[in-house]
Design a protein around this nucleic acid. Sequence first.
DNA 1: CGGAATTTTGAAACCTTTCAAATTGGGTGG
DNA 2: CCACCCAATTTGAAAGGTTTCAAAATTCCG
Lengths: 235, 235
Amino acid sequence: MLRRALNFEEQPAIRRLRRLAPLDNGALIALERALGAASRFGPRAEIQVEGEPMAEPRLVVSGWAARARMVSDGRQQYLSFLLPGDIIGWCYHPDPLASSTVVALTDLVLCPAPSDGPTLHQVYAMSRAYEEAYLLDQIARLGLFHASERITSLLLEFHERLSLNGMAQGHTFAVPLTQERLADATGLSTVHVNRVLQQARRGGDLVWQHGRVTLNDPAGLAARIGRAPVRVSRS
Amino acid sequence: MLRRALNFEEQPAIRRLRRLAPLDNGALIALERALGAASRFGPRAEIQVEGEPMAEPRLVVSGWAARARMVSDGRQQYLSFLLPGDIIGWCYHPDPLASSTVVALTDLVLCPAPSDGPTLHQVYAMSRAYEEAYLLDQIARLGLFHASERITSLLLEFHERLSLNGMAQGHTFAVPLTQERLADATGLSTVHVNRVLQQARRGGDLVWQHGRVTLNDPAGLAARIGRAPVRVSRS
DNA sequence: CGGAATTTTGAAACCTTTCAAATTGGGTGG
DNA sequence: CCACCCAATTTGAAAGGTTTCAAAATTCCG
């Protein structure tokens, strides 16, 4: 039992939630119980479909997903990424319709997001604020940046978020995305993503091998594109 | 008194809020009182600054504002537009920091957003949901669309929103933006916005004169770019 | 080991930006 | 009411970044 509890608190999802706001015992118990009701999805599974009623809110336990908009000719734009510890479908109004499709990018484990008590509401509110801030970053990325800056900026976001939930090892972290998906996120063509990535590697900015990325100088890259860490609350 | 009350309900801001959710008498009274405490800003006034603590939530009574990200070299990207009836700074977590700068684009009148009772909370939740949906649209616009589609898409958004709050007359509505600002919103250069707009006029898609836009066939334009009206709730 | 998915390459076409200058338009003061 | 000025729009030409298409090379997985 003790072992299990320990393991529980080391889960990236729980780590993230704890960093957003202090969790009391009741919240931790509710979360541990919710984890027991987790369900599993394969890559390309659609967790939520744009325009359809939203399901109950869920917590990403492990794996990556993306919010996406698709257009008729098959192209798609990733709006944001959902990583372990992120919340899907938390809503403040009745009868909500999904404003985006959510698709699993890897094997994905979700569990119900327990909503007992004000502590968890607090945490979800923080989570929501971060989510919105990253949406704004994504707009600035697409509207203001060139190809290589877009990719740098997105990788820095991954690094920041994966550091928060304990999934980064220093400047290294797993990115389970193909270049095609990176293109869907950055509004570029796959071919161009490939070329820009090669240039970044040759320039010594990063190493990308076997699904793992190492940013050689995250702070330097951030400075180069004028990026500051995302903050949503004073405390 | 009766006259005043009538005028009150015809304000675009109030019209919008009423469409989001039914307002009970208490809410209407609170709103009318809040309008009495309105304050006025000139173009370029900064209502909120990215990274600084957020002020109390406010309601846009009249005029246009934009949420923006700026970079050091003076360029800026508009993230979204704030029109009469929109809410600025409504937040669900404590000690919030602004994740974007809000700047007045015209003469702007704001009033405190009253927060008495569940009715108004409901309305603000709906407003928030729309705001997020339009942010997602903006991402898709920048990531997926070509110049002319971006502009069309944005004008359709304006038309939709200004219809909701009663500020559109059929297919015609005021757009108090210069081409330079349209460029800031669409991630294009001013020069290119100019050329695309000329083409749209010559193609008979729209008329833009004296700050007023007429879309000759909104539904046709929407179909051309695959746009559906934004919906956030089933009801 | 074989087959599918992913990454890589080349060259040409395309869209968009940049720069600089001319033109138009709107508002102000004389 | 006209002259003037500043802001906004318009124009041209050249440079630049990105896409497209098609095919080759590589990697991954069963």
